[in-house]
């Protein structure tokens, strides 16, 4: 697939001298959902703001479907919709008016039925004539999404769409994103919730200190970097890990009822067969065996800490 958004060597130094982006390169493919994961202050919002034209970059180039965002800003921006992190809405306006306003701002002709449809898809069909200030926080977020979708963009940026929202609304948001992907919209979202990236993204980019540390297919990332754990539950507690099993570097649970073995899924030999055989030899009786894969969170923490070191 061709890159719809292409970011090349982008740097951003703010007036105070703070370097928020240090040579960022990123290609976003059409139709994908990419999650930019990073701690607060990593440069996620600066990167999005730069692509959308809110912040000017210090150096580098960005194109959207081949159009330079500076030289050809009208065409480039028309293809982009942005949902900001903060709920920035004019409180006294009616929902339908504020969404129609956004459509006009992006140069599209008035089209009430299209705007109504966008609102209905976002379950705001019965709130169109309400003033924005009458809506709940969750509905206001939907209005922001409706505004961003009102001009039928090909690329949608969601800046921390679920920061500070309750679990139910977060799930709703994920459903909306999945639905948009089905319609062919490319989605870039920033988040510091790892479970969010894990749940909805196709690819994950990890950003920290203004640099992209890696961009990888979610499944590949987890498989490549993921360690797996094998937990062996015992019928009877053990005091210490038997000397015969010392080579496996097992972790004993506090009550001595289970032992945990960590192995690399990529390795030629995982050592599981030998371990189980040695456990039997050591005279321990197994009650149960389970495996689990390390979460994206562990990968992420590992990367960010490695970066800071």
């Amino acid at each position: 697939m061709a890159a719809i958004v292409s970011v090349k060597d982008v740097t951003k130094v703010y007036d105070g001298g703070f370097q928020a982006l240090k040579g960022v390169n990123l290609d976003i493919e059409e139709g994908e959902i990419i999650a930019l994961l990073g701690p607060n202050g990593a440069g996620k919002t600066t990167l999005i703001s730069t692509i959308c034209g809110i912040t000017t970059m210090t150096s580098g180039t960005i194109t959207v479907a081949g159009h330079d965002i500076q030289k050809d800003y009208r065409v480039a921006r028309q293809m982009i919709g942005l949902v900001p992190q903060e709920i920035n809405l004019e409180p006294f306006e009616k929902v339908i008016d504020t969404v129609s306003f956004s459509r006009g701002l992006f140069g599209k002709k008035k089209n009430r039925s299209l705007v109504e449809n966008v609102l209905k898809t976002l379950s705001l069909g019965d709130k169109m004539e309400n003033r924005v200030m009458m809506l709940s926080g969750g509905m206001k977020r939907r209005v922001l999404i409706a505004k961003a979708l009102s001009h039928e963009p090909r690329v949608l940026f969601l800046d921390e769409p679920t920061a500070g929202v309750d679990v139910e609304l977060r799930k709703d948001m994920w459903d909306i994103v999945a639905e948009l992907k089905k319609q062919g919209v490319t989605i870039i979202l920033t988040t510091h919730y790892i479970e969010e990236a894990e749940a909805i993204a196709d690819r994950i980019g990890v950003i920290n200190n203004g640099e992209i540390l890696l961009v990888e297919d979610k499944d590949t990332l987890m498989a490549r970097m993921g360690k797996k754990h094998l937990t062996v539950e015992l019928a009877d507690p053990v005091g210490d890990v038997p000397a015969a099993l010392a080579a496996y570097d097992l972790e004993r649970s506090e009550d001595g009822m289970s032992l945990r073995y960590t192995y690399d899924t990529k390795a030629d030999r995982t050592g599981i067969t030998a371990l189980l055989a040695d456990i039997a030899k050591a005279g321990l009786t197994l009650r149960d065996v389970k495996t689990d894969q390390s979460s994206l969170e562990e990968i992420f923490v590992g990367l960010v800490q490695g970066d800071a070191a």
Binding site: G53, Y73, R74, R77, G107
Partner: peptide, 17 residues
């Protein structure tokens, strides 16, 4: 000033205008 104050200025800045 009002869009600057309530934050809706983001839309003016990101629009093709």
């Amino acid at each position: 000033y009002f869009p600057k104050f309530i934050g809706t200025i983001y839309e003016l800045l990101s629009a093709p205008i």
